[in-house]
Amino acid sequence: MSETVFEGAIRVERFVGFGMITIRGDFSDAKIAQATAARFGAGVPKTRAITVGDTGMLAWMSPDELLAVVPLGEADGLAAALADDLSAAHALVVNVSDARSVFRLTGAGAREVLAKGAPVDMSPQAFGPGMIRRTRLGQVACAFWMSGDDQFDLVCFRSVGDFVFDWLKVAARDGSLPEYL
């Protein structure tokens, strides 16, 4: 792969190692919710929330969709196991790890970089740990959450991964962030 790390006003890393599983179903159905929670060791997240468990992270994507983020090597096995758990339910489980690109933004200015392209209030009062936001970055769909202090993980469709990396590199250029930082 070509360049995967950009060091500017913040560090932008094109990240490999996320396994991602899409789970669709009615999570108000206790059977579906319990099977999902048990498989990942994390509770079913509430609206726009993420929960972290032993086997990975669960993120709220829509009222009937969750995204599980797990180690890449475990995605196939976990997806198959959960599909088996839910075989009697009206639900869908798919390993979508290859469908998305992942970026890790690290640095005190990470919020400012995202705020340049996403129509989201990125102040610490409005956006904090435990939340996920699906929105757009520039002209493309993305989702991001905090994975540490001053650190954001961002996913987008792989087909626009190069565009997003280029976009982030421009937005994170040295000297391009507000001076109050």
Binding site: T47, R48, S62, P63, P119, V120, R133, R134, T135, R136
Partner: peptide, 12 residues
């Protein structure tokens, strides 16, 4: 009404 998020027009 699903995300309970206030977003500006270009997100919709």
């Amino acid at each position: 009404p699903y995300c309970e998020v206030e977003g500006e027009e270009t997100e919709f």
